[in-house]
Design a protein around this nucleic acid. Structure first.
Lengths: 107, 107
DNA sequence: TCAATATATGAACAACTGTTCATATATTCA
DNA sequence: TGAATATATGAACAGTTGTTCATATATTGA
């Protein structure tokens, strides 16, 4: 049985690391509902603008979100459908262990 | 639109954090092939025994792996089917961006 | 019971991460 | 062009993480 390719192990780790932070989880969950600009996200989540921008850059750099400019605003959206699948998967795992049955992740 | 429940955001973050490390990814990938004891894992992966045990504890504490004792050995296995799904999902995401098309995650 | 083998644990430490503050850049409109 | 608004970035810092080394615990068989 061949062990996992080293590079892939690192890249997979880096990929999942992105989801390993509550702020980013909130951002992604919010963007799962609809595309939003930065100030909209600041309003929705409790994060300050700088922290948010730093996190958005990370998400951008890892192809998790994409963005487009609209006048003064920059509108972020999820890059592909994997994000939702992943979040749903995580929530489902937790719901087996804890009491989050009520939570939903919209399509 | 209600923002994501704070506790859930933290727990989801903690859950994904587990997958955010190459050593743990390798461990999980190995256990996806078959159940293994610690020394078997030490052999397969390049990790030293102590590091491995520390990581296994983390995986245990987060209900990602379970274990049974068999004589002197402790045999680890994946706790549920989500792990494989998650890994496959991650690999698929990366394959869209990079050149990992060749990699497989067995059922 | 003692040595050998297998695994777990605690302390210590370097490396990494997320936030904040201050400031920079970009865009619009008067 | 200049003020106002929206977003991005860099430096700094505290907190967290993964590994190593040393040592502890558990199980077996002589």
């Amino acid at each position: 049985m061949k062990p996992l390719n080293d590079d892939l192990a690192y890249d997979l780790g880096d990929f999942f690391k992105i989801f390993g932070d509550p702020s980013r989880i909130k951002i992604l969950y919010a963007l799962l509902q609809k595309d939003m600009c930065v100030s909209e996200l600041v309003g929705e989540l409790g994060l300050n603008q700088s922290a948010l921008s730093h996190q958005l850059r990370l998400l951008r750099q890892n192809d998790i979100v994409k963005f487009r400019r609209d006048g003064k605003m920059v509108i972020y959206s999820l890059d592909d459908e994997h994000v939702g699948i992943l979040l749903r998967n995580g929530i489902e795992h937790l719901s087996h262990k804890n009491a989050y049955e009520g939570e939903e992740v919209s399509e």
